[in-house]
Amino acid sequence: MTAPYSLTDGLRIAIADWLDLERALKGVSENTITAYRSDVTGWLSFLMHHHGAGFGTAKIADLTISDMRAWMASERGRGVGPRSLARALSAVKTFTRWIAERDGFDATGILSARSPKFTKKLPRPLTVEAAKDMISTVELQHSEPWIAARDMAVLTLLYGCGLRISEALSLTGKDVPLSDSIRITGKGNKERVVPVLPVARKAVDAYILECPYDLHDDAALFRGKRGGALNPRLISRVTEQARMQLGLPATVTPHAMRHSFATHLLTAGGDLRAIQELLGHASLSTTQAYTAVDTARLLEVYDAAHPRAKSAPNTP
């Protein structure tokens, strides 16, 4: 493999300035910032190999669709899958739109590159019974009562309120006692109001009574064994232990509890737009993935409600 060129100062500064704006104006998470930096740096490094060490910011304006195809072919040759390549291309296009506006050039050659097709992975929800079993089994994984109560409270919030694990663990002392609803700041600093079921309030209250630490306003609500903020990996670990005891598949993760929340609401007749708001999805298309896991229910609704279906003769 050819040794990588070091990016020019201009390219490094451009990436840093762009990421600062993404962070400040769009509230992009640090994980996304890290992925953006890696994807765009990799793309620019390829272009320096492709065009020579003199490649700098001014040369971006001269790139063509052929350059983009060469990069994408190189990525596929390295074993990069279509999903990962699509993500990298999205980052490249976002960076390109910014620098094209900054430097005043037409970026059609880059922006016209088509994203590779890939099959979207559908969420794999648990059954209602399995979701309940997971919560009760998680409580049995630790001998210390307050830790057992903590783990049960976290999973109850994931399933009962549809929270992401990061959102549940971002709660602080000032959020309790929980009321009928809580204001959550999710991805992109987007705020939403989420109803809190009585069972979730009860689980959190039980944890607070058992917790040996002072849960003051600015401190994390959920604590680790030594009193620091709870590491999400511990919830992943206890979830894995519980699902193995129950004989459930490896797809049962903390995030699967959130998927189950959405799917079970849909199955019960919940409105897709309302579920989008509850989940904090920026786009309805993201929420629409849940419709594919409940086709049977949709067909039943059609058969029961559509005028043509109701009036159709019973014989051919």
Rank of each mutant, 00 (worst) to 15 (best):
T2D: 09
Y5G: 08
I13G: 01
I13T: 15
D17G: 03
E22R: 15
L25F: 13
L25A: 12
L25S: 14
K26W: 02
G27K: 07
T34E: 14
A35W: 02
S38I: 05
V40N: 07
V40T: 11
V40W: 01
L44I: 13
F46K: 02
L47E: 11
M48W: 01
G56K: 00
T57S: 10
K59S: 13
M68N: 05
G79F: 04
G81H: 12
P82Q: 08
L85R: 04
L85C: 10
A86T: 14
A86C: 10
V92A: 13
K93P: 07
R97P: 06
W98E: 09
R102N: 10
R102K: 11
D103A: 02
D106T: 11
A107R: 10
G109C: 12
R114M: 09
S115T: 15
T119Y: 11
K120S: 04
A131L: 09
K132M: 01
V138G: 07
V138A: 14
V138E: 05
E139T: 06
L140T: 15
W146D: 07
A148I: 12
A148L: 03
A149W: 07
G160P: 08
C161Q: 07
A168E: 03
G173C: 00
G173V: 00
R183V: 14
E191Q: 15
V194K: 04
V196I: 15
L197A: 13
R201N: 03
K202Q: 14
K202C: 02
L209G: 00
L209F: 00
E210G: 00
D214H: 08
H216D: 12
A220Y: 01
K225E: 15
R226T: 12
G228I: 08
A229L: 03
L230G: 06
P232Y: 02
I235H: 05
V238E: 09
T239Q: 10
Q241L: 15
L246F: 00
L246M: 03
L246K: 03
G247H: 06
L248Q: 05
P249W: 12
T251H: 10
T253P: 03
T253L: 09
A262S: 12
L265P: 13
T267Q: 10
L272T: 10
R273M: 09
R273C: 08
R273P: 05
G280I: 10
A282I: 12
A282F: 00
T286Y: 04
T286L: 02
Q288E: 15
Q288L: 03
A289Q: 12
A296T: 10
A296M: 13
A296N: 11
L298F: 06
L298S: 06
L298D: 04
E300V: 09
V301I: 14
V301Y: 02
Y302H: 06
D303K: 13
D303F: 07
A305Q: 13
H306S: 02
S311V: 04
A312L: 02
P316M: 09
